[in-house]
Write a protein that binds this DNA or RNA. Structure first.
Lengths: 337, 337
DNA sequence: GACACAGATGACAGCGCTGTCAATGCGCAA
DNA sequence: TTGCGCATTGACAGCGCTGTCATCTGTGTC
């Protein structure tokens, strides 16, 4: 019925072990033999049985993608990363599994242990904001489970992908400054997300470089959600001197700001310019279409997973890769009135 | 190091086979023994090794969720279903795997075969629109792989979940009729999606019930995407007698209609009412917030997976479940001017 | 009291691979 | 020519479970 490794071995006139060697790209197989075995595998359409490989070889060929489903409201951003990770895993015949893990809550590490005990992933892809949660990283190291991170806070001792969020953020603010805005507000994200800090830092950097003293009233704390964007904007609009532009730390909050602007009867971009970050599909579907920072989420997921797979496959050359961003100027920003 | 089944057996003074029976909820174990074994498993925090179970038992404890990533542009709808499926699988200690499968393209069935050969899922969850692709279903039956569907076209001989989309659609149109609208347009979805047909049928049913003859110019074909919604709306707005209300077959297209309305200088809802379908997060983030049909996607994914798991676990009582919908009246619909 | 029978339990082999280690063959130096 | 070392290959056991089948026990029947 099913073609087994033994069948391939017989067809290629070698021992099962040799077929196993070829299958796993091990050294010490002559080229002639290797080719013969490959041909036999091909001809018979041989597919190794994952469970047998795992049991005997003590690895699972499984990559788990960890995400926080608490601070990430049904995020398109995550879906895109997932898509990239899946593609990378597929290309190396690894399987991929999603693991929601709430960062709030003390059973965080316990849930990680359960994941390991139940599924034995060979490696793990970490997505924001759990790229930087120390107890988690510590446990992964203890267990000897390699991981790659998407946009981690610290780049040292870490593989995965990374974007210069601070520069991206600064670029957005400079765009607003170039349009003549001076009273530029910032709606920041949840404080323990690395992204929040960088984006805020980029905002401050640009403002300072323009010689503008920081007005604390113009920096409002949000939570990366639409609702928090609405709330932050209402607060900003209530100021005696309201901002002429708002830069929100992600698109969901930016859409909240636009919503609140409509509510307050402010026209975007005539009365208020709005900038976002991420370029999720929503950004182009808003009216007016949102000016934002585009990050290649799918590609970031893919590259992070590929870095991880390099490690899993015993190649040593994995690293932290820098990914490009771009400023997408659309219709939500305009010269100050 | 790791606790094996044999260790539990020793602790409970029974044979390994008996522990296996308890683990798999098999019959013919006395209650006393069962409890003793359960206690031992608990005390030792025993976790069966999936690969060993799979290898010996010839099943994978794996459920694959199939989706079409061609017609579903990074859809939040799918992400929600996935979340529900994942929860259900977790609760029964099954693992879950995502499989994108392009319906267009002739290698469709071949890719399914590859999935089976490579991963051996015990069962499959089908999401729209691949719930009704005959060659796929045929192959799954041939291979003896049970499947459950989310919103399949045909409910016969099928397990999973289902919503009365036609009634939901009719409810939306009746809402518009009740507001006094008569020239109500419909932007339909891709024709080989079951949902498109039902939603169109519900529209027609409501219009006919209101005694309105169908105006073919008011029914425009879309493709479930934002861009197709924009295009359809432009076409509708160009009509000598433009509609006073548009019901789009999903929220992405509805957001496209609103976008085009803004573009054309039409105020929503004063000059044009707009209705959608799905209630994705976007719906509440638009200005004005979109009136739409809410379907419990997450719950639908969860229930469909649970039905499938009943079959996989040998219970015979799986079925096609009807899920409720609700009309979410927000700010994009108003009485006709 | 003898027998049949169903429920409860265990012995044992084996699922399809890989790790370990031994065996083989070959080139090259002395 | 002999011997040594390295590259190549294979024999064999075993990973941690479950399927099959045999065995044992207690109960009901006549």
């Amino acid at each position: 019925m099913r073609v087994r490794l033994e069948d391939v071995a017989r067809a290629a006139s070698v021992s099962p072990k040799t077929v196993s060697r070829v299958l796993n790209d091990e050294a010490n197989v002559s080229d002639a033999t290797r080719q013969r075995v490959r041909a036999a595998m091909e001809a018979m359409d041989y597919r190794p049985l994952p469970s047998a490989r795992s049991l005997a070889g003590n690895r699972s060929f499984l990559v788990a993608m960890l995400y926080d489903n608490n601070d990430n409201p049904a995020s398109t951003y995550l879906a895109e990363i997932q898509d990239g990770v899946l593609e990378a895993c597929d290309s190396h015949r690894y399987s991929m599994m999603m693991r929601p893990l709430r960062m709030r809550g003390d059973d965080f590490v316990r849930r990680l242990d359960a994941l390991i005990a139940d599924h034995h992933p060979d490696g793990v892809v970490l997505t924001p904001p759990i790229t930087d949660y120390a107890p988690l990283l510590k446990r992964l190291r203890e267990r000897g489970i390699p991981y790659a991170s998407v946009s981690p806070m610290s780049r040292a001792d870490n593989i995965g992908v990374h974007m210069d969020e601070q520069l991206a953020s600064r670029t957005m603010v400079e765009h607003l400054l170039a349009l003549g805005h001076r009273r530029i507000a910032h709606v920041s994200g949840i404080s323990d997300h690395g992204a929040s800090g960088w984006r805020l830092a980029g905002y401050r950097e640009a403002m300072a470089a323009a010689g503008l003293a920081e007005d604390p009233a113009l920096v409002v704390q949000g939570a990366f959600t639409f609702a928090s964007g609405v709330a932050a904007a209402r607060q900003l609009f209530a100021l005696k001197q309201r901002p002429t532009a708002v830069f929100a730390a992600n698109d969901d909050m930016a859409s909240g700001v636009m919503w609140a602007a409509h509510e307050a009867g402010l026209r975007v971009p005539q009365d208020l310019s709005v900038g976002g970050f991420d370029d999720i599909p929503l950004a182009s579907q808003l009216w007016p279409a949102l000016t934002t920072i585009r990050q290649p989420s799918r590609e970031m997921g893919r590259m992070a997973a590929l870095q991880l797979l390099e490690v899993l496959r015993g190649r040593g050359d994995a690293q932290m890769m820098q990914m490009p961003f771009s400023l997408e100027v659309r219709d939500s920003t305009a010269p100050v009135a």
